[in-house]
Amino acid sequence: MIPLQRPPLPEELVERMSARGERLPQYRGGARELWRDSRTIRRELSAHLVAMAAGLSRCMYCGDSEGTSIDHFQPIAMAPQRAFDWLNHLWACAYCNSNQKRDLYPMDRDGLALLIDPTADEPADHLDLVLATGAYRPRTAKGSETIRIFGLDRPVLERGRAQAYVRCRSMLRDLARLAEHAERAEAGAVAHALTVQPFADVLYEMLRLRTAPRAALVFGAETVAGLNMLKDPRALRGPLHN
């Protein structure tokens, strides 16, 4: 899980969502039915969420599968008034949404969510990612519940992250060598491929740790050089993100 930036919606879409929300008390079918009947709004929201998502429309929870639908972070069953609240919408794959999270929304004694919202929280404040094994370790109660509810400890996800770590290290070494030999076009292609692959949390964690005292020893000097190139917009052609 990585932090994501939530941009403002177009004013016209905001107004239509607000108008829908105002209909909730009178709508005979309830919030869930009104949401289902709002196909145009859902389609437009999906496009904005896909643009926010990591990689190529990856699920904002597991980071592995392609996102398929809008998830209400605070479920409609619990907070029907937030059905059309942009701040309550995230992009999720079918498995995370329907098999894992469903209508679960654990809270602490003060009524605050015990789930990480990647558009509002820094996941690294609550989770440690062990790159070599692909396992998440909780740092807080919110981290522990996030692992449990979203199934972030599923063996298939842990194996996927561990393999993504191997892949990232190899590609970053290639990136450093290509840049060293001024093969900028191919280096740019490798850099882009790094930023759109699944398990963006692996690359994000590597970028976060690249300045640690033992980073060169753990990752290798060429890998660190590749990470620094991703962070420096002047090093390679084309826009890169962290």
Rank of each mutant, 00 (worst) to 15 (best):
G30K: 09
G30V: 08
G30I: 02
G30T: 04
A31K: 08
A31I: 10
R32Q: 14
R32L: 12
R32H: 13
E33H: 10
E33T: 08
E33K: 13
E33C: 05
E33S: 14
L34E: 05
L34P: 02
L34C: 09
W35I: 03
W35G: 00
W35L: 05
W35H: 06
R36S: 10
R36T: 11
R36P: 09
D37Q: 13
D37T: 09
S38Q: 05
S38W: 07
S38P: 07
S38I: 07
R39E: 11
R39Y: 05
R39S: 10
R39F: 08
R39I: 11
T40N: 14
T40A: 13
T40I: 10
I41V: 15
I41R: 01
I41L: 14
I41W: 01
I41F: 03
R42P: 00
R42S: 01
R42N: 11
R42E: 01
R43I: 08
R43D: 09
E44F: 06
E44C: 02
E44N: 04
E44K: 07
L45T: 06
L45A: 13
L45F: 13
L45S: 06
S46G: 13
S46Q: 15
A47S: 15
A47K: 13
A47R: 15
A47F: 07
A47D: 12
H48F: 09
H48L: 04
H48W: 13
L49N: 00
L49H: 00
V50K: 07
V50A: 03
A51E: 15
A51Y: 10
M52P: 07
M52N: 06
M52H: 01
A53S: 15
A53P: 06
A53H: 06
A53D: 05
A54C: 12
A54F: 00
G55H: 02
G55Y: 01
G55K: 09
L56W: 05
L56A: 14
L56S: 09
S57I: 07
S57C: 12
S57Q: 14
S57Y: 06
S57T: 12
S57K: 13
R58W: 00
R58P: 00
C59F: 06
C59E: 02
C59K: 00
C59P: 08
C59A: 08
C59M: 11
M60S: 05
Y61P: 02
Y61W: 11
Y61M: 05
Y61T: 05
C62I: 06
C62P: 01
G63F: 03
G63H: 02
G63R: 00
G63V: 10
D64S: 07
S65Y: 10
S65M: 11
E66F: 03
E66K: 14
E66A: 10
E66Q: 08
G67I: 07
G67F: 03
G67P: 03
T68A: 08
T68M: 05
